[in-house]
Design a protein around this nucleic acid. Structure first.
Lengths: 207, 207
DNA sequence: AACAACATGGTACGGTCGTATCACGAAGAA
DNA sequence: TTCTTCGTGATACGACCGTACCATGTTGTT
């Protein structure tokens, strides 16, 4: 075997270039030549490591998912060694809001992929489609755990609230992206609901 | 003046063709030739009535907004002559969920336009961008009105709840679109929150 | 030293897209 | 009737895009 270069490393480099340019100009406007230029390699190289654009996009979404997961993990680690359920949930939700350049790119590309997958069946068969379910389940578990330890209102429906929190976070993230809302107002709304869900396990039903 | 044909009617016809094909194959995949074929006219005609693709897209989003507004109005009218605030709010929210082909197209194209407007400053300057604010204000007013008449819990924050309901509806709409969620489950979540907000004006704060 | 497998560059091809150009029929105005 | 303006068609142009092809180093193996 000749020159031996780390293929995975190069693929990662190119995938990151894809993410960069897509985050800047939009996923619909990205071409293989743009990716090549952004990565500082020739068009041929992009073809060599990803044979087709479709494959490049597939790898792009996988890489993006990985980066995002790592980022959420870092946020959780930054929340302290043993955070309570509420702190954990807050970290999860706030990490999804587009507050800096990286999370802005995350949100934009996730949304783009989602919308694209509605009419592109090839993308719809991709793995990241079940990722939201994972987040939903994790949130539900955290809420139930908080209820069991008396930190959260025992009368709320954990599953419904988990869905609601994630749904609100997603839309408000897009609102931030298009400039309709500030991150602060989005955080305020989330805090409002967390205040409603947490703390008051001590107010029983009147009935 | 010669042949005189109703320009506005033709523009509407072409705009509807745009909506049709975009809803079927995705906004990113629509070309002027596709629109022409769908409308049953020649490419030249599309050029004639809309000089450029950008202008065609502009008109498309305006037309879509109008159609959607009319649809919501019809839903409200169908809710009876003098519906209560809750019925009105339910009609507003449920009309936004992609439950049939028309609302599915609405939701898909609105989402596509929103995402596109993040990286396309020409689209970002379009009028439909402040439409969500109108819905938000209307919802807030309905909630406050319900509070004033004792139909809704006096302790909730009308503005925050309005934002939340709309945000949840939007994300769950997209979830329905991509097949992650059923319309029924989305409606259940909305009902859950409406049940929380309405009815119980009679439980005062324990403090 | 020679060869084979790999990595990389340059460039060309076919297709499509938005736009522009040329041409012609049709109908009210003079 | 003649003319001007409007509506419509067909087609061409230039650009770009994804992909394919050909060539050439480069390096480990025999």
């Amino acid at each position: 075997m000749p020159k031996r270069v780390d293929h995975e490393e190069r693929r990662t480099q190119i995938a990151e270039a894809l993410i960069q340019v897509a985050g800047r100009r939009g996923l619909h406007a990205v071409g293989m030549r743009d990716v090549a230029a952004e990565a500082g390699v020739s068009l041929r190289l992009v073809q060599y490591y990803f044979q087709t654009k479709e494959r490049l996009l597939f790898h792009g979404v996988q890489h993006l998912t990985g980066r995002f997961t790592a980022r959420v993990g870092a946020r959780l680690a930054a929340a302290g060694p043993n955070p309570g359920p509420r702190a954990t949930i807050e970290a999860l939700l706030l990490a999804s809001l587009p507050t800096d350049e990286e999370s802005r790119t995350f949100h934009l590309l996730y949304s783009s992929y989602s919308i694209l997958s509605v009419t592109d069946e090839a993308l719809a068969a991709q793995p990241f489609i079940d990722n939201p379910d994972a987040a939903e389940n994790a949130l539900t578990e955290l809420l139930k755990q908080a209820q069991a330890t008396g930190l959260a209102d025992a009368h709320i429906d954990a599953d419904t609230e988990a869905i609601s929190l994630l749904a609100m976070t997603a839309t408000m993230g897009t609102s931030i992206l298009v400039g309709q809302r500030t991150p602060e107002s989005a955080i305020a709304v989330l805090h409002h609901h967390l205040d409603r869900i947490f703390n008051g396990g001590q107010t029983p039903l009147p009935t």
